[in-house]
Design a protein around this nucleic acid. Structure first.
Lengths: 162, 162
DNA sequence: GAGAGACTACTCGGATACAGTCTGTCCGAGTAAATCCGG
DNA sequence: CCGGATTTACTCGGACAGACTGTATCCGAGTAGTCTCTC
């Protein structure tokens, strides 16, 4: 069970977009160059973010992407679920129903105990991701990244955004 | 990101094996019939449990599997990691290093902030799974399952174990 | 009746096949800004 | 100098291909009980 690389790409792109000034858009091409990624395939990831309503687009030149909501309104979970799907990581196929010792047509009273435990762990994972917004990530990154790279990147992005 | 069905199979098999009396072994065939699963493929899942040291085997007739440790010593995480691998669910490919604004040969100071957050969520998931042992699952199942099915299954298993 | 050998039922490992997903590329349609051209 | 037509740069969507993984089956080798056969 490994998350797709698109998840990583989408998170990094949202991190960049969250620093974009109001009204500006950044193109797929710029995002691909900034991260050294294949433009065409990255475009797929951004499209899914768009379909999930996390990101807004404009067509034409100076077109591109920007966040659809405030950075403080978008969580890691939003992005992960947009790319990876919002289904549970554990699917219960109710194999207990195949038990030959059961009476014919016996009806289960509730979800399997094993599934319940797996789903609780799943929720713990989701809750941890739900807690972090991109506004908070911005603060962390600002401390984390060397100032000259931080501001250099910011200018580079600004220059390429329309 | 969806866990393999083998995870579900392995968990159910361990649940059955944890109720097995000392010194008894239960065959793949019996476990497959009990859960309505393909014997050959289920055997693969049990083999990985064996390689992980969670389960012990005996050859020949009356051979099969039993838990290698006490049920209270085996957690859900042990089984999930045995089948699914113990690597992190999020792999950081360090795409920040592709930033064209970075000076040549710049060396990162530590793991990417995005990766750290994803790994924390991963740990939350693992911790939730680490908390539940098969001894506890046994208690839950005993309350959960209708008594006649519970004891009927137990007898069926005992009859087929050697 | 006892012991040796054949038989059986099981685990284990490897080989193979098929389907689905992930990764990545390519192209055409549609859109909006910028540019060009004619009046 | 102004307005309409063309060009350009981008998004969006679909089609397609290759690699990898998950699912599943089959078979042969090895092992440990059981059964049979012979003495």
């Amino acid at each position: 069970m490994i998350l797709k690389s698109q998840v990583e790409w989408a998170l990094h792109c949202c991190a960049i977009l969250s620093g974009l000034p109001e009204g500006r858009y950044l193109s797929t091409k710029a995002l691909a160059e900034l991260h050294g990624l294949p433009k065409e395939y990255l475009s797929k990831a951004l499209q899914t973010l768009s379909q999930a309503g996390l990101v807004r687009t404009t067509l034409g030149p100076t077109g591109g992407y920007r966040l659809a909501k405030a950075a403080s309104e978008i969580t890691f979970l939003d992005v992960v679920e947009a790319v990876e799907g919002n289904g549970r990581t554990f699917v219960c196929q109710n194999i207990r129903a195949n038990n030959p010792c059961r009476p014919e047509g016996y009806c289960e009273s509730g979800p399997c105990a094993i599934a319940r435990i797996m789903w609780e762990a799943d929720e713990a994972w989701r809750n941890a991701l739900r807690r972090v917004t991109f506004a908070e990530l911005g603060k962390i990154l600002e401390k984390d990244i060397a100032p000259e790279i931080w501001s250099g990147t910011f200018e580079w992005v600004l220059k390429r955004s329309g």
